[in-house]
Amino acid sequence: MEYRKIQYWQYEPGEKEERVLEAALALTLQGRHNAYLSEIASFISEHTGAKYILIGQLSEDREHIHTLVFMEDKKLLDNYTYPLKGTPCEVALAHRFCYHPFDVAPSFPEDKELQDLQIESYLGSILLSEENEPIGLAALMDVKQIENAAFAEHLITVLSPAIEEEILLLR
Rank of each mutant, 00 (worst) to 15 (best):
E2N: 13
K5H: 09
K5V: 03
Y8T: 05
W9I: 00
W9C: 01
E12S: 11
E12P: 14
P13E: 02
E15N: 11
E17K: 08
E17M: 07
E18M: 14
E18W: 15
V20H: 10
L21E: 03
L21Q: 05
A23D: 14
A24N: 04
T28V: 04
L29A: 13
Q30G: 06
Q30R: 15
G31E: 13
G31C: 05
R32C: 08
R32I: 10
N34M: 06
N34F: 13
Y36W: 10
Y36D: 08
L37G: 03
E39I: 01
E39Y: 06
A41H: 05
F43D: 02
I44Q: 03
S45V: 03
S45R: 10
E46C: 12
K51F: 11
Y52D: 01
Y52S: 04
Y52P: 00
I53R: 11
I55V: 13
I55C: 06
G56H: 08
G56T: 06
Q57R: 15
S59I: 07
D61Q: 09
R62E: 15
I65L: 14
I65S: 08
H66V: 06
T67V: 06
T67N: 12
D73I: 02
K74L: 15
K75S: 11
L76G: 03
D78N: 14
Y82R: 15
Y82L: 12
P83R: 12
P83G: 05
K85P: 00
G86L: 02
G86M: 03
T87A: 04
C89V: 05
V91H: 10
A92N: 02
A92Y: 03
L93Y: 11
A94Y: 07
F97M: 07
C98G: 05
F102V: 08
D103M: 09
V104R: 01
A105C: 03
A105L: 01
S107W: 01
F108R: 01
D111W: 07
D111C: 12
L117S: 05
L117G: 02
L117V: 03
Q118E: 10
S121F: 02
Y122D: 00
L123Q: 02
G124V: 00
S125F: 10
I126Q: 12
I126A: 10
I126C: 13
I126S: 08
L128R: 09
L128C: 10
S129F: 11
S129T: 15
S129I: 10
E130N: 15
E131C: 09
E131M: 14
N132A: 13
P134S: 13
I135C: 08
G136K: 04
G136E: 02
G136P: 01
A138R: 04
L140K: 02
K144Q: 14
K144P: 00
E147N: 12
N148S: 07
N148D: 10
A149W: 03
A150N: 03
E153Q: 12
E153D: 04
H154C: 06
L155V: 01
T157S: 11
L159T: 02
L159G: 01
S160L: 06
A162D: 00
I163T: 01
E164N: 09
E166Y: 08
I167A: 13
I167P: 00
L168S: 12
L168E: 14
L170I: 06
R171C: 09
